[in-house]
Design a protein around this nucleic acid. Structure first.
Length: 500
RNA sequence: GGCGCUAUGGUGUAGUUGGUUAACACGCCGCCCUCUCAAGGCGGAGACCACGGGUUCGAGCCCCGUUAGCGCUGCCA
């Protein structure tokens, strides 16, 4: 049997990084097993689903490089008729029943507490989960009342005795006694629109899904779905639940509380490389085992991936809301930097180009007459960059004559030595005579001039760094001179004399 | 409240059928390199493997209990 998996997000917001990881694992498993990877948009809650959200989810998957679905995207809402028919069939077969209890609406805000409170109350009074006055209503009477126009919801009839069990590919054998499971609602009263558990099952059957890989928050409710499979007379697929990704305080990662760190697009927009972030995400809740490898290409991850390598304990996504430098997980940042400085230059160049175009720093010559220079410059500055944004930020002075001076750098490297006012223009003149303009010649000229001027070469080097780049830190200064060029270097040295 | 899941340094993890000084990565500290900052190299701090009992010659690995965290308990998904 060929493997068929699906990623099934509900389009009620941006693509959460936890969902992105679920998508990744599904994709990895499909590619590993030579199976099919499908996308199903679970938009049964029409109140909250938006097209905008669907677009952003798809854009996120595209960015991650896992948007090569093997079949057309399925929109769950379009199958509502099938879902409803399945539920009604169960009513006819006596496996489900109409519940004529009036619908009670719930405020979305604090449902969780409300539910817990209700459950506590029910437990205190010893109320059975399946006690419902309509559960054993004769079918004829039920049909009659329905025909008479009474509104009703449809509930699955959970057996009185026995237990539900299934083997989760990650969490192992799972068991739950039926008395713990309520007669879940399949169709809402009134419009008879299908609810999540029903829709998922019917669609997974229709799509021939063999493995359901999803967040652990669905683990206990899987018994309910297993029950629906049973009622429908279909063997359930293999379930594989994934550990959750938690915030530093171990709470669930949510937009309300944690903001943009949990949105996948944030990473794209803040200069992350898809390959790096994907790599980082894969390691949250999964590891290739034995070798304990970390930096892996997509192909290597596919090679190493297995459901057995998935953990059972939740992972913490480590970041700090107080410290801007730790706005996201430090390891993700490190990994991004690692990718930026070690990936093949020709793969990085197009990404840098996009960033420069977006920030107005791109010039056509960079891919034409100055492509060699551009490549050399990127190679030089990428060594200490963390994100693509750094190319237009810290890297600005290498690509544009309009850049800012860091006050601390000016104070430290220019203002502390008054003689630089005369020395800098003199150094400029000296460098203008260097021929050919090579790193070695530049270094020789600068050191010779430092000797003659009776100052340490370091004084010139550090002053030059600030004069040429506006910063106190950067690559080896002679490389910087070489890359910035003779004329521009000389001009910047003279201009900087005014800052002394 | 009930049910379920989980528990290795601050974080992510390794630790194959019980036999080690409990390993790696990020982060942190120091040294080297050096024109700065990184990178890199070397070294260090940081885990009585949640706690308490067992089983065993021997337990991070097996069993029981406790605690904590998380999840589910919805006519949300």
């Amino acid at each position: 049997m060929t493997v068929r998996v699906r990623f099934a997000p509900s389009p009620t917001g941006y693509l959460h990084i936890g969902s992105a990881r679920t998508a990744l694992f599904n994709w990895l498993f499909a590619r590993k097993t030579g199976g099919a990877f499908l996308l199903r948009v679970e938009d049964t809650d029409l109140q909250r689903s938006t097209e905008e959200s669907t677009r952003s989810i798809i854009a996120g998957l595209e960015w991650l490089g896992i948007a090569d679905y093997d079949e057309e995207i399925v929109f769950q809402s379009r199958n509502a008729d099938n879902h409803r028919a399945a539920a009604l069939r169960l009513v006819a077969e006596g496996k489900a029943y109409r519940d004529f209890t009036p619908k009670e609406t719930r405020a979305d805000a604090d449902v969780k507490q409300e539910i817990a409170a209700r459950a506590r109350g029910a437990a205190a009074e010893g109320v059975d989960h399946r006690s419902n006055p309509y559960r054993d209503l004769p079918l004829e009477e039920s049909d009659r009342r329905a025909e008479a126009g009474e509104t009703f919801a449809v509930r699955l009839k959970v057996a009185r005795e026995g237990r539900s069990s299934f083997v989760d590919a990650v969490y192992g054998a799972q068991e739950r006694v039926y008395s713990e499971i309520e007669d879940l609602v399949l169709l809402r009263s009134g419009d008879l629109s299908p609810l999540y558990n029903l829709s998922v099952v019917v669609d997974d059957i229709e799509m021939d899904i063999t493995h359901v890989i999803r967040g652990q928050d669905h683990l206990t409710n899987t018994h309910k779905q297993a029950l629906i499979y049973g009622a429908l007379g279909v063997a359930p697929p293999t379930f594989a639940h994934l550990p959750l990704i938690l915030a530093p305080n171990k709470a669930k990662l949510s937009k309300r509380k944690h903001g943009e760190v949990v949105s996948l697009t944030t990473y794209r927009d803040r200069g992350f490389l898809a390959a790096a972030f994907r790599n980082f995400l894969a390691l949250l809740g999964w590891s290739p085992g034995e070798e304990n490898r970390e930096i892996m290409t997509l192909a290597e991850m596919v090679e190493q991936f297995s459901l057995e390598g998935i953990h059972r304990s939740n992972a913490v996504f480590n970041f700090s809301e107080q410290d801007a430098r730790q706005w996201t997980d430090q390891k993700a940042l490190w990994m991004n930097a690692e990718y930026i400085r070690t990936m093949p230059l020709e793969e990085l160049l197009p990404l840098v180009r996009s960033e420069l175009e977006a920030s107005g720093l791109w010039r056509p010559e960079y891919s034409d007459s100055e492509s060699a220079w551009f490549g050399r410059t990127v190679e030089l500055i990428r060594q200490r960059f963390y994100t693509l944004k750094d190319f237009s930020g810290q890297g600005r002075a290498y690509l544009s004559d309009e850049f800012e001076f860091d006050d601390a750098a000016v104070a430290k490297n220019l203002k502390k030595e008054p003689r630089l006012k005369e020395l800098l223009p003199a150094l400029a003149a000296r460098l203008e005579a260097v021929e050919p303009w090579t790193v070695e010649n530049i270094e020789a000229a600068l050191r010779a001039f430092a000797d003659e001027s009776n100052v340490k070469a370091g004084l010139f080097i550090n002053a030059s760094r600030t004069a040429l780049t506006g910063q106190a830190v950067g690559p080896s200064m002679f490389d910087v001179f070489e890359v910035i060029g003779r004329e521009r270097s000389a001009k910047r040295l003279r201009d900087a004399a005014r800052l002394v």
